[in-house]
Design a protein around this nucleic acid. Structure first.
Lengths: 191, 191, 191, 191
DNA sequence: AATGAATGAGGATTCATTCAT
DNA sequence: GATGAATGAATCCTCATTCAT
């Protein structure tokens, strides 16, 4: 069994297991043993690879953010024009992969974690800044108050996501449409 | 020593202590002993009055919602006209008392709790429905799509609150204005 | 069972149990559970009263030193004249109570502990300084080099004790005589 | 890759690493992994060569004793006359190499180990007997009570060493002189 | 020979909860 | 009513040791 180059695989398996476990439990009160078992290894090995529970959770959080960032980047590549790019960013937030029950649930738990964990808070900040920066960049061409609209759209995305996470359903299309409509309303009004 | 009418005082003290403790810790990982000590009594007594930690936390959550509901009701009493009433509801969400650092922090923790605790989820639902109902009621007079606008405004309130809770600051006026502006943009556009 | 004022009794029982357990094991590799069981309580309670293993061990060390100090004080009270007092100090180091197998064994373990634990090192220093101070005080009347003789006698006491601890036997009288004879030889020579 | 004659080098490296690690930590609570890493190999290989942690520690202890014995032997070769030989033995105990901070620290830890480990105890016995035998042999020509003086000098050496190990300083010359002076006092007195 | 993977037992610590007084 | 005593289960983490390659 002990092949070489296991570390990346193990780490990846643990990260996914952590997200799933947290998602299912709906809370961070998940034991290392549970995660490790789901990832098919002993708790000791999990510690060996991550050094501790906290770092494992942070890695999971980082992974969620990385996947999400990738989606946004992909979406932006294909989009054309400022409005198209805004749509792409918003859609990326509500894509099926991101909107998976387990992911949203884990996400909300990480939100809570960010309140007591400095590193988690830092990760959230990075995500929020990146989102804001993307939005502002394309809003400049469409409105005289890009900052304000970005603030609203950003908060709205979070709010819609939050409600989805809580309700447990995943009204993907509805969510996207809701935000897009608001965007257009704001653009139309502030023009 | 066995004074009469101690129970309400004890319960109230515990609820407040729980909110403060959770708020300070930024998480629900708070011990019964801590809460009880802050409330000036033994952990055993806390159990006596609430029967368990979970019920104590739920009582704390209920209390936050109750205080908030009271604020909304007060605001609605003084407000005039549909738009004025909408303003009142929104303002109530960002009042100083509600927007206190500790309260927002506890609130976000309860959000997370609602994912794994059915009763907590139920309380959140009640709050969301009441908010929605208030919004829809007054939006009927101002737009042809009251449901949709209510959805957006509701999500926006949550999103703004969420960000405030995370950032730790309390940009009260900004928050209120942001939501109000969006409301007007939506009304203007959808009329 | 839960009577009031249990704390001192529990702490005392734990300290004694710790000394016995360490003495029997011949090492500090003793579990809190073992100590607690010997003291007739749960491991949780042991933590409740001491806050941790280290503090429990330090309390045990302190207790050994305190008992020993008491013996020295008692001996000095009854002794007469400088030489009599010196004899009393030396005898106190090899009294039966102090020379009990378990105590010596624990003592040697604490010596080792003092190398990695600052607080333990501090306790050892206090003991050594007190011994030295006692010796020097009475040697002043008997020799022109009290400091030097005190150094030798102090080291000799430690050495004899160390060997006794290692050998497991307790040649009380021999030990005492050995040190006393050396003292007299030094005094006779240095006069 | 499988070089010939690697075993002695590996074993030696591990023994030295163990002594250093124990010396630095000031305790036997040192992991095999730490020792192996310091010796530049994997923990698995360390096991391969020694069969277990205990045997590795015993080998380290044996090594310290062997180095020390060599020093004594060398000293005795060059010394002349009974008194000169006694001086040589005493000096060998406080030579720089032996008196190195790390070595003394490890030594004290091994003392503690001898209480719970039969093999370690046996090694200590061998050392003490050899020291005693050396001392008695030369004391015969100088005093009528060689056994008693040997006992005192032996215990004094241990005591001085113990204090040096604890204090962390290495007052080499002082230590040597202290013991030598005592020796002369005893010889002068008991003649 | 040598490594890194892997395990599993064991230990300190925490804490909700119960209970005698 | 109120307390502090007490427990025991649960959890994180460490580490010696084994093993496939």
């Amino acid at each position: 069994m002990p092949k070489i180059g296991m570390e990346p695989k193990r780490r990846s398996a643990l990260v996914n297991a952590a997200i799933d476990e947290i998602g299912e439990a709906g809370s961070l009160d998940v034991t290392v043993a549970q995660i490790a078992r789901r990832a098919g290894m002993s708790a000791g090995l999990a510690h060996h690879y991550f050094g501790g529970k906290e770092q494992m959770l942070l890695a999971a959080m980082r992974h969620i953010l990385a996947v999400f960032s990738g989606k946004v980047r992909d979406g932006l590549h294909e989009a054309k024009g400022p409005h198209g790019r805004l749509e792409a960013v918003i859609c990326a937030n509500f894509e099926d992969h991101v909107f998976d029950r387990r992911k949203t649930s884990a996400w909300l738990s990480f939100y809570a974690m960010a309140q007591s964990n400095t590193k988690a808070a830092h990760l959230m900040q990075i995500y929020q800044r990146r989102l804001r920066s993307n939005l502002v960049h394309d809003l400049r061409a469409l409105t005289t108050r890009p900052e304000e609209v970005a603030l609203i759209i950003g908060a709205l995305i979070d709010g819609v996501y939050l409600r989805a996470a809580l309700s447990g359903e995943g009204p993907h299309s509805m969510a996207t449409e809701t935000v897009l409509n608001t965007l257009d309303a704001l653009l139309g009004d502030m023009e």
